[in-house]
Design a protein around this nucleic acid. Structure first.
Length: 582
RNA sequence: GCGCCCUUAGCUCAACUGGAUAGAGCAGCCGCCUUCUAAGCGGCAGGUUGCAGGUUCGAUUCCUGCAGGGCGCGCCA
């Protein structure tokens, strides 16, 4: 139940009836007519721009038109007060009964409240994390991981058929480096003194375990053998270990992908040739020479005839080579083939969560996707800014070379998965953000995670007290008298809760899941405010030992708050807490 | 040189994608605990939305130009 949709229909019906009566021209476009919360809630509960949007077509000024719409709106069900304001806004308030119905609906639907059919079951592929399988996940990976996961949750709630996907780049040169590192660590495990890890290999301690495991499995089988013998098995072994490590790291913050696709598989099963042939058949491949790249000193650059893709026909700044001068595939080819593979699997809407340093990824993928799908496939990329780590106010220095990277595991073990997830979602994705270990675990209102959890815990505190007082805190929806929820503060709280379905749709539409944290903060704030009123005015408390009816009506309100917060935290992938201490 | 993103209160960020008097939290100041968790609440103060134009009933939002910041610009991965 979306209260804004409900009254949008009401407004639409009024406009339609006016068209029939000849007060408005027929065949108007009602898409621009919106029913929204007014910017300032003192103006009313709901607001519509109908009069302003339609004034031109109607040949009337907005105020005049607004008055005739308002007149009809006054008699609509659940509408209490209609006023005309500013340039022609029609503001209206709802009756207490209308809000009580919303409360009822929330309790009836439970955490399904907020679910939307907006996505119409459309298949969406969200690819996120996709960290190379060359080491454990570290601090730099956590933001994109959380953003992708929460976005997937959000789209799911908004009615999309979401698949969470991870793409393992296990075919590039970086996994050969991994294999060589693994071999070195294997020799180390076999008792050899390997000294310092040479430049260009992975220096991390985590590779020791890989070498040891290999030694345990195969014994001295690979000792004193040429690289061509051990490279492939070493690589397969190490990559498998790394994938396991990464999956375990992701599990720590509650992330599980539905599909894992390996680059090697795409390369080996002939998809690249298929894509290349397809592009060739469309006459989009030719032999040509590109001008030297601009803006960068390129000492070793020499012109050469290459196999080019006419990506400029699809908006690219220039055509792109698909093969290197030695005739092997250029690196974007597997990526193109991978997206082709996604489309073959039925995903025409593809979302990619990437670091900001992949800035030109979209430019490269879009033309190929457009060509291969006849313009039906769409890719959007959510870019994520860097996270700067702070400890005690001091920036944490990261040096890969020294091997002292901060792993995701370390962070999660220090602050907990809920804090990491929620905090990552408090900012727009593509800006830089600070992550201060001390601050994110601080239990005060400047920590949004805590603030929301505190509201949820307070709700449960009320429920616990109710159980003690009345023997139960369960609400019987058929008998509870919600009409007792008629105070301004109670209705305000319900009004706040009623916005949840709209928030889901707006955030899903914009693919901006971080808005949810702001909304949850507002809900928590409304609840904390009401709670504190009970300090000054005892009649506003939730529980009244001598008034069971009122207590249970208020408990219903508490349950509604719990429902919405829990539903929102579920989208965040954060476990709601029933107690914060004690 | 080109492309994309950014610039909002002292600080960190919002503003429901074109709406009304641009909002929160920190930091500062003033109040509220014999009362369901004060880890909370209420209030005050703080602004030429980087600058200059344009589009329209209406612009932080869209367009153009300028200034400042970030990222990207190989057949590397």
């Amino acid at each position: 139940m979306n209260i804004f949709d409900t009254y949008k229909s009401v407004v639409d019906a009024i406009l339609a009836s006016m068209a029939i009566a000849g007060e408005l021209p027929p065949g108007m476009d009602l898409n621009r007519v919106k029913v929204e919360p007014p910017k300032d809630i003192s103006h009313g509960d709901l607001s519509t721009n109908a009069a302003m949007v339609l004034s031109k077509a109607a040949g009337k000024n907005p105020r005049e038109l607004g008055e005739s719409i308002a007149e009809k709106l006054r008699t609509a069900d659940g509408v209490r007060e209609v006023t005309l304001a500013g340039p022609g806004f029609i503001n209206f308030r709802l009756t207490a009964e209308a809000w009580q119905k919303v409360a009822h609906a929330i309790l009836k639907q439970g955490t399904a409240f907020g679910d939307s059919q907006m996505g119409k079951g459309e298949k969406v592929n969200v690819e996120y994390v996709s960290v190379n399988p060359t080491g454990p996940m570290h601090a730099g990976h956590m933001r994109g991981a959380v953003i992708g996961d929460v976005l997937a949750n959000l789209l799911q709630k908004a009615g999309y058929d979401v698949t969470r996907e991870y793409y393992f780049n296990d075919a590039g040169t970086q996994v050969d480096v991994l294999a060589r590192t693994a071999y070195l660590r294997y020799r180390e495990a076999m008792g050899e003194n390997i000294g310092e890890i040479p430049e260009g290999l992975y220096p991390g301690e985590y590779m020791k375990a890989v070498g040891e495991a290999m030694a345990k499995r195969d014994g001295d089988k690979w000792m004193n053998r040429p690289e061509q013998d051990w490279l492939a098995p070493m690589r397969a072994f190490a990559v498998a270990r790394m994938i396991e490590t990464i999956k375990a790291d992701l599990a720590l913050i509650g992330i599980r992908h539905d599909v894992f696709t390996n680059e090697r598989e795409i390369v080996e099963n002939g998809t690249l040739d298929k894509v290349f042939t397809a592009l060739k058949d469309m006459d989009l491949i030719y032999q040509g020479t590109l001008p030297p790249p601009k803006g960068k000193e390129m000492e070793d650059w020499e012109p050469a005839e290459l196999t080019l893709f006419r990506s400029s026909k699809f908006g690219d700044s220039s055509d792109r080579p698909l093969k290197k001068r030695d005739g092997t595939w250029a690196y974007i080819m597997p990526d193109i083939a991978y997206h082709y593979d996604k489309m073959q699997r039925g995903f025409m809407t593809m979302i990619n969560v990437l670091g900001k340093d992949h800035g030109n990824y979209l430019d490269k993928m879009k033309p190929a996707i457009a060509a291969l799908s006849d313009g039906r496939g769409s890719i959007t990329v959510q870019f994520c800014g860097m996270v700067k780590l702070f400890k005690n106010g001091e920036p944490v220095k990261l040096s890969k070379r020294a091997g002292n990277i901060i792993t995701l595991r370390e962070i999660v073990e220090e602050v907990g998965p809920g804090v990491v997830r929620f905090y990552m979602m408090t900012r727009t994705p593509d800006t830089e953000m600070d992550f201060d270990f001390a601050k994110v675990v601080e239990q005060s209102k400047d920590n949004p995670v805590f603030y929301v959890q505190y509201a949820h815990a307070r709700c449960h505190s009320v429920l616990r007290n109710a159980r003690e007082m009345f023997g139960t805190a369960d609400i019987d929806l058929d008998s509870v008298d919600l009409s007792l929820l008629s105070g301004a503060d109670e209705l305000e709280l319900i009004r706040q809760l009623s916005a949840w379905p709209r928030q889901v749709e707006l955030a899903a539409e914009a693919k901006e899941a971080h808005r949810i944290t702001g909304y949850l903060h507002d809900v928590a704030s409304a609840f904390h405010a009401f709670w504190n009123k009970g300090r000054d005015d005892a009649t506003l408390r939730f529980l009244h030992p001598d008034n069971r009816e009122l207590s249970f009506a208020r408990l219903a309100l508490v349950r509604a708050v719990v429902t919405v917060i829990a539903s929102g935290l579920a989208v965040m992938g954060v476990e709601p807490l029933e107690e914060l201490h004690g």
